[in-house]
Design a protein around this nucleic acid. Structure first.
Lengths: 203, 203
DNA sequence: ACCCCAACTGAGCGCTCAGTCGGTTTTCAC
DNA sequence: GTGAAAACCGACTGAGCGCTCAGTTGGGGT
């Protein structure tokens, strides 16, 4: 592992757990065994290091999803949605620290003044929401779901699952025990079962 | 308005928009006209000031909900859920800065080392989730909803609405345009009508 | 053997900022 | 009016931190 990679790795953990501001360059240095000067040799400043981490995260997440979607074959949109949901949750567990990074405010702060950062963030979010949206479009086409506005519904589903992951990292509730309820809730939201008009056929 | 109140007010805005770490005591001083020494006369340190803000927020939110629930009379649980949802969203707009504070990571960070902070946070979240839960229990009792696990469903609904508010503050999507979809989604999740055997409550 | 240069080093500079302290003003009970 | 306490003030301190820079190292090319 090169010094540069080691620095990115250590900084990811520290930025995630302690936050950008609360992480000292000296800590990263100490954790990697690299001198402080070395960090500034590879990254022009602390902010630049942060962006490198974000970019790496984006690539890794998208790669994971690409691989997953390529190797899976879904019967219909409903099945795809469920698959994508649970894969998202497993990813959030597997890459826990970096998801935490996304759930901090540091990146959004930086995005206000740094165009590159804003692009990274939007690209990450759009990528994720698109995956859900694709499932919804597929489900609509094959009749496994009712006709819902795909983009908006995707956003709602995303905010739901993202919120749960957040609960977990905040350690306020055990979100893990909510996974089955989450899937059930999503299914109810979009399933095609009673053919009523959208929501107004009350028994 | 006393100096102390002015300090809390200014600090709330600054902590919300700039974050705890990024807010200088000198800024709070400048914004209020109070000298820096005065801030430390009223609050023993920066952290203590932060906790005072949190506590104030908790009280205000709970007061608002108490008032709302007292003056409203709901036909059934379903109506209550919708009312509570939209009131939550309007509150988030009205108290935008303080909700932003809740969506930052500062408080959760502090909660790890500060017991009082953790208690404030849990009390805020439990208070909010309970409100949704009460609506679900009511709906279950009066038959306007299917039988769902109230606590878990309340958590899911809460994470959904909270996620939307977050989108808004992050300015990534216009969550406002999603409000009607949100209500629809919730209704589908819990409504009592002919379901294909999942939850079978009678009309 | 020699050079070159990318990689790396770490002491230290310049600055920032939470918190202090000695003092002044305001308030108010008697 | 008087005294004392509460409220307020702001220059100052000192620890901490991002970043610099002059110098070292080591491996590959000739």
């Amino acid at each position: 592992m090169s010094k540069r990679d080691a620095i990115i790795h250590a900084a990811t953990i520290l930025f995630s757990t302690k936050g950008f501001e609360n992480t000292r360059m000296s800590e990263i240095s100490h954790m990697t065994g690299a001198a402080e000067g070395t960090i500034f040799y590879h990254f022009k400043n602390k902010e630049d290091l942060f962006l490198a981490i974000l970019e790496q995260f984006r690539q890794d997440v998208m790669n994971e999803f690409d691989l997953y979607l390529r190797e899976m074959e879904f019967e219909d949109g409903m099945e795809m949605l469920e698959g994508v949901l649970s894969f998202y949750l497993s990813l959030a567990e597997k890459m826990e620290d970096r998801f935490l990074l996304l759930h901090r405010h540091d990146a959004y702060e930086l995005a206000r003044v740094n165009e590159a950062c804003k692009e990274h963030l939007e690209s990450i979010y759009n990528g994720l929401v698109n995956i859900f949206e694709n499932a919804l479009v597929k489900g609509k086409a094959d009749g496994s779901m009712v006709s819902v506005p795909p983009k908006k519904t995707a956003l709602i589903i995303f905010s739901m699952v993202d919120g749960l992951v957040r609960f977990n990292t905040y350690e306020l509730y055990d979100a893990g025990s909510l996974y089955t309820e989450l899937i059930t809730a999503c299914r109810k939201m979009v399933r095609n079962q009673d053919n009523s008009g959208i929501g107004d056929k009350n028994a």
